[in-house]
Design a protein around this nucleic acid. Sequence first.
DNA 1: GGCCGAATGATACCAGGTCTCATTCGGTGC
DNA 2: GCACCGAATGAGACCTGGTATCATTCGGCC
Lengths: 152, 152
Amino acid sequence: MRPGINATQTERIIQALERAGYQATPNRRLVAELVASADGHFTAAHLLDRGRRERVTIGRATVFRALDLLTTLRVVERLDLPSGSHAYVLCDPDEHHHHLICSSCGRSEDVADGELPALIERIGRRSGYRIEAHRLELFGTCPRCAGAEADR
Amino acid sequence: MRPGINATQTERIIQALERAGYQATPNRRLVAELVASADGHFTAAHLLDRGRRERVTIGRATVFRALDLLTTLRVVERLDLPSGSHAYVLCDPDEHHHHLICSSCGRSEDVADGELPALIERIGRRSGYRIEAHRLELFGTCPRCAGAEADR
DNA sequence: GGCCGAATGATACCAGGTCTCATTCGGTGC
DNA sequence: GCACCGAATGAGACCTGGTATCATTCGGCC
């Protein structure tokens, strides 16, 4: 097994695939491993690169298709970084949450805040809109990076 | 003057440019007019299209450059639609706010909620992150579109 | 072992956006 | 009014992220 692979996470992803009735093909396993071992957010290009460095060949389209699949299974979510580019993060499919992203190292954390729904409901009432979806993204510096910064 | 142009908005945009020390060239004026008369959010391609239909020639790069400029002046903001594509909206540069976007007609409204900062501060404290930026986007159906739907 | 639909890879393609570079424009000093 | 210089422009090449097409291959099931 490759170094840095988180076997439990990989299994979790594979199981999500199988539970939804998709084949756990070698390619999808590979993508699952790459995703599970990514530290923080990543892009499709990033996965392809890592794959290539480990001498595994996998088509670009296949990676995109796998990410798509994982996105619809909510195992992975697509982020819009402030730069305007897209990235993906591994996350918990079971509860609604938002992402807190470290702008320095890219690590991401799921945050659930119980009060956001109330706030959104209030905005809906005030504006007359029927609010159907929302997205909250938080960007900052994680404790580890903040510590490293302070050390210098 | 073109039909549907909101002269006051156009002037507001031009003034923001001049205040920041940029030339209010005919091209930038044109972009300002197109932006001011857009109903809801729009893309660069959309502006180019409208320009072309009105037989005005303006380079693609110029439109992107103008939008960039307006974005840094905060007269316009870039949105990330749920589809993953980008759009721009005209908005108020003077106060921090978020966008409420009608998924049916694309109209967008600025919303300011006084309680969000407190919520974010709480998340920061709980997670240990130093939160530096955030983005909240709300998607739904505006009263007008909801009404039209109900009529059918 | 054979069948069939799902998965794959190569490749072409598309959209949104950026870069480059030669040209033109506009404001300023004279 | 004119010359000058930096800012703005347009054309087009280019890049990146992502999608569509299509022939081939794979995997699970009978």
